[in-house]
């Protein structure tokens, strides 16, 4: 029996190594400064992916700026203000529902609501808003858990010094919960930066360099999808895939390190 369990663990690790290894080995040779800084030529058959990187940054920024305050605010409300009642249950169910709606349904919604109904047209801004909605439940759920994990004694200590409830939350509870909240925001944004289906009918898929966030664009995952399914250039597809994998790895490692360092400093170890 032991062997079976060990095998299951090892298989999981091997799957990851094979996928990441394959993408990196095939993709890294395609990556150079020109690939990162140039615009695509002939729909991406040659040239680089600079507009896609900029598009990805734009949509992720919009998603973060919109979703982080909403998610953290909701988490604070549920953890600190609301008791256990019907509204709270409904809010939790709402977040779960939002988390489980398929990305393509978000895409249809983005198209019919932001692009057409609100008249935003195809733009990175509209795409960012769709991604914000997708990132919201993750940010909310992780933030709520980490706010609730802050010891009650911190809150009592602050209240006993004459701080108001909001001062206590703002100056003591949130700083103590920051590592968890950061992790939640990053997880949410990692989901946003990897998403293609939800934005394929919203961002307009333009190849040119977006100047403002209200321009159409084509984030990296969507570019990879188009390159691969339309058979435009496998070499560049591998390059794009590798860039995304590296990006995700960097984000994960950097966040983990920062969070750990902050925790160490805070707890004086």
């Amino acid at each position: 029996m032991q062997t079976v369990f060990w095998a299951s663990g090892i298989i999981t690790v091997i799957i990851l190594l094979v996928i990441i290894g394959y993408i990196l080995i095939k993709g890294l040779p395609a990556i150079n400064l020109e690939f990162l800084l140039a615009e695509p030529i002939d729909s991406g058959e040659s040239g680089g992916i600079a507009p896609m990187i900029v598009s990805s940054i734009y949509v992720t920024l919009v998603a973060g700026i919109v979703a982080a305050p909403l998610g953290v605010g909701a988490a604070v409300y549920l953890a600190e203000y609301a008791g256990e009642n019907k509204v709270v249950k409904l809010i939790r169910f709402g977040a779960e529902t939002l988390a489980s709606i398929p990305s393509i349904v978000f895409g249809l919604f983005g198209l019919s609501f932001f692009v057409i109904f609100l008249g935003m047209g195809w733009s990175l801004f509209a795409g960012g808003l769709v991604l914000a909605l997708m990132a919201l439940p993750t940010i909310f759920q992780v933030a709520e858990v980490s706010i609730e994990a802050v010891p009650r004694s911190y809150r009592e200590g602050s209240l006993a010094l004459g701080a108001t409830k909001w001062e206590t939350i703002y100056r003591v509870v949130l700083p103590a919960a920051i590592p968890g909240i950061t992790t939640g925001v990053i997880l949410g944004l990692a989901r946003a930066i990897s998403e293609a289906a939800a934005i394929m009918f919203v961002v307009g898929s333009a190849l040119s360099m977006p100047i403002s966030i209200f321009d159409p664009g084509r984030p990296l995952p969507l570019h990879l999808y188009v390159l691969a399914t339309e058979g435009i250039s496998m070499e560049n597809a591998f390059g794009t895939a590798a860039v995304m994998v590296i990006l995700i790895l960097i984000i994960t490692v950097v966040t983990n390190t920062l969070v750990e360092r902050y925790q160490k400093k805070m707890m004086g170890r």
């Binding site: 200590g157 209240l159 006993a160 010094l161 701080a163 108001t164 100056r171």
Partner: peptide, 28 residues
């Protein structure tokens, strides 16, 4: 609570610097 301070059973400093712990009440 500004007039009636409290010290708890278990020490409960905030996860902040020593200075900020003492300065906290004044700041709020």
């Amino acid at each position: 609570r500004k007039k009636v301070g409290m010290v708890f059973q278990k020490p409960n400093p905030f996860p902040k610097s020593i200075f900020d712990n003492v300065a906290y009440g004044m700041k709020v």
